[in-house]
Write a protein that binds this DNA or RNA. Structure first.
Lengths: 281, 281
DNA sequence: AATTACTGTACGCATACATGAACACACGCG
DNA sequence: CGCGTGTGTTCATGTATGCGTACAGTAATT
């Protein structure tokens, strides 16, 4: 999971040595801290870990951590002196209704889906050029894909992501990828912008996307969109299957697609009236 | 829901006119912003709303909002120029595992509970002297208690809260309430520290708590603790019933208790190995 | 006990930030 | 069309804030 840098580097190549204009140092740092602590496993971040990771002066960091802990956005585990995300941060996050509504709409349908096909199902939304996992239901087989709700992956490397990207117009896709390099995570990762656009076009026609170990080798994945009543793509559901369990791709795919399509429309219905907006930029 | 101030005022009575020592202005403001936006319904906060609520200079606020929106912690709805919580804030909040694990462990059991007794069930944890709702399952009857996951209430005013407080030692309770006034929300709200401690003692003996419209009039509520294998209180489950549907309290209470106890142990088991720590101070 | 490594505290200086005021832009309304 | 309101931008200035250094507490190690 650490193959992807967490903070996507600035598209505005000009990395001034001093500071990006219009930025506020301690505001940025607060967010850096929250994201850093959120990105690491629970009991791993001690004071000096943070200090080295973010390269902040000791005294400055102390002040910031004080503010964050005093207000309950972080907590300091007194045992091993590690910092974690606190209640207040969770509370704030709960108000991102788009994710919470989607997750609660999806959960029951995902477990139904898994009853029909015992593999890992996931729901994700699009944020920029990345897909963000919002809900999941894991297969109970010993060999299975495990994932984290809240994690994000480059959209062009996953079936889920391709479905989400296919929901955008080609020009919008163009805009979002402008100036970005397509990192090759595995041999089968999409390599060029052209190849991506071709694949997206085919996704738009077929109504589903696949990926053959394009981010994680040995995992096959099919995904379909979750549409609003007006036909715009709200999110996507996917089914991930270890290639080892995949003697005959096409037959499994058809079965998975049947389950996924049912699941997607169910979720779409459950979301029903509670649609407010599309995910962030 | 607006009867309670969101930011619990400082226990250190000394409110200096200038600024609390050791604080960092823009860091505090970032958190103020996140909490403010999170505390209001989605489409209500425009730029000047925020400005007046937080009483910030225009130019300063612009800078902060820029940082927050650029980094995806807030989003600006271009339609009506209102600010909302963004994906990144949600992502960070997801890492407060205690809540997310509890919620996912609870959800299925809560819906089972509701099948047995068609009323509103809730799960909450303790944060300071407040209970924070983590999961819920609403009754489908027209007259029902509706609540929000992520909202918080003074613990001494709810059955849930009393169960959670009863999980602490009397001295710890003492410490947390030191210097706090017990606001009377309804005629039946607990009025004094002594009365509260008495009730808590009785909760410790009986293993459950009740409240008779002590925060919201016309709502009866029973609650039981969710315990770890070592017997410490992890959270609490409650059942809320409109008094109008409550001809004979004791019989309904017994039924509710049966359902709640079953539910609590199920959740406790589901949490199982994934216990990491108690909620924040 | 003495040593080390890590966390937390205190303080004075220079810098970078918050501020207010004034201007620019868009929108809706009379 | 002119007006009002809400929003976003620019810029100069004084001051709050971030920084380095130095010191204190704590825990585990030898």
């Amino acid at each position: 999971m650490d193959r992807v840098r967490e903070r996507e580097s600035d598209a505005t190549g000009a990395a001034s040595p001093t500071q990006a204009a219009g930025s506020i140092k301690s505001a940025e740092r607060v967010l850096d801290l929250l994201q850093l602590v959120a990105s690491e496993p629970s009991d791993s971040l001690t004071f000096s870990d943070i200090r080295t990771r973010l390269d902040l002066p000791k005294s400055s960091l102390h002040g910031l951590l004080r503010v964050l802990t005093d207000r309950g956005f972080l907590t300091l585990d007194p045992e091993n002196k590690t910092y974690r995300i606190g209640v207040r941060a969770w509370q704030v996050g709960q108000q991102f209704r788009f994710a919470t509504q989607l997750a609660s709409a999806a959960n029951s349908h995902l477990s139904e889906a898994r009853v029909e096909l015992n593999e890992t199902f996931q729901v994700a939304i699009l944020d920029g050029v990345e897909n963000v996992y919002v809900a999941k239901e894991e297969s109970d087989q010993p060999l299975r894909l495990v994932s984290e709700v809240g994690s994000r992956l480059p959209a062009y490397t996953t079936g889920l992501g391709k479905v989400l990207l296919a929901g955008l117009s080609p020009s919008e896709v163009e805009r979002r990828f402008k100036g970005r390099r397509l990192v090759k995570f595995t041999p089968s990762t999409v390599a060029t912008r052209e190849e991506l656009e071709q694949q997206l076009e085919s996704v738009r026609e077929l109504g589903y996307a696949e990926d053959h170990g394009e981010f994680t080798e040995g995992v096959y994945c099919v995904a379909v969109p979750i549409l609003t009543s007006t036909g715009s793509t709200l999110a996507a559901v996917s089914c991930s299957i270890p290639s080892a369990r995949l003697p005959d791709v096409s037959s499994v795919r058809d079965q998975a697609l049947r389950v996924l399509r049912k699941c997607a429309t169910s979720i779409s219905v459950s979301m029903g009236e509670s649609i407010d907006s599309t995910p962030a930029g």
